[in-house]
């Protein structure tokens, strides 16, 4: 077997997950989206990162 079917299955699974996510999540609104750069935006960083530990 070559690598091609592995990649096709993976990309199909990713596309399926995105479709599921878009159907279940809050609707997207590009007009309420944050600015392109956080740097200089005046907005606080989100905090959803591998290093973030939630306060109890």
């Amino acid at each position: 077997m070559t690598r091609r079917p592995v990649v096709l299955i993976l990309l199909t699974a990713a596309a399926g997950f995105l479709a599921f996510d878009l159907a279940r999540s809050a609707p997207l609104d590009p007009y309420l989206a944050p600015p392109l750069f956080a740097l200089g935006s005046g907005q606080a960083a989100g905090g959803a990162h591998c290093a973030a530990l939630p306060a109890r």
């Binding site: 997950f17 995105l18 996510d21 878009l22 999540s25 809050a26 997207l28 989206a33 989100g46 905090g47 959803a48 990162h49 591998c50 973030a52 939630p54």
Partner: peptide
């Protein structure tokens, strides 16, 4: 912060 990520689409999540 994480509950908000669960509600919103992954297309708004950085990682």
């Amino acid at each position: 912060a994480n509950a908000e990520r669960l509600r919103e689409s992954v297309l708004t999540d950085v990682t």
